[in-house]
Amino acid sequence: MTAPLQPERLPADTAHLMQTVLIALTPGVIVFVYHTGWGGIFNLAVAVISACVAEALALHLRGRDAGNGLSDYSAIVTGVLIALCLPPLLAWWIPALGALFAILLAKHAYGGLGHNIFNPAMAGYALLLVSFPRDLGIWLTLPDAFNTTLAFAIERAFNGGLVNYPLWDAITGATALDLYRDLSLRPEPLTDALYGTTGTFGALHSEWLNLAYLAGGLWLMYKHIISWHIPLLIIVSLATCILIDSAFNSTHIGATLGLQVFGGATMLGAFFIATDPVSAASSKRGQILYAVGIGVLVYLIRRYGGYPDSIAFAVLIMNCCVPLIDRLDPWWQGGKKP
């Protein structure tokens, strides 16, 4: 007789929401592990464990119920997201440091879940990126990564990572986005320049990773956890920028579009990072502006910036703008001054 109150397909509570995000990340995590081998698994484990420890510590220090705080799964999501951005075979303390910074400073120093201005995972990753650019720039290519043994991964983790491995140059390679950034420096045509780094429809290997994230993201949309606004507008604005760029620089549209949209962390950023409700704009109008801003910044940084990938910086820069966007929203809505 009881009338059902909870509408269908809405998350029951915060913990359920975060669990759903973790489930949606599963295909991405599987492909990621396939591409990074034991190194990736090791990073995931370290990041998640340190995130949870940091969360418990922060909640304890702030006099909150640590059990209740941990049970919302948000720390696990942060840990997983950081690990998914990192290359395999790092020194063990790099993912740990990223997770600690994300949880302790980017999240709890601002007042904990719901009060952080910046996306914690991206803040942690950005710290690592500016502190250890060399470590984070070394990606093992697929067959080698997949073939690494657990023993080798652990051995490297406790001996300064791949960057201290004498033979690393022989077993890693530049990614498509690395090359894209340097296009203007290269004399040869684009297709030659990108030779060996493009795959079937995107960047080599990471195209499948992006496809997995896309699938998870679409499922999240179906579950009403995220709305279509942010992911779609990030991808559309990024693609528009590339099309305009291609028109002016007569580069190969299909190849650049594919490797930009299905390369790097585009899909992870569009569906799982930029959609973090805490640090995104709150109204739909605000979200549109926020997403377009991210899309344009991703293009600008990838094309002209000093880093090959730029999801983290683009998201963090737009996070800075969110309070302003939110404040202006009633003004757009009703013509009233905020």
Binding site: L10, P11, D13, T14, L17, N68, D72, G112, L113, G114, H115, H224, S227, P277, V278, A280, S282, S283, K284
Partner: peptide, 11 residues
Amino acid sequence: RECIRCGLCAD
């Protein structure tokens, strides 16, 4: 729990 600004309320 704390508000996570998910926006479901606005919807």
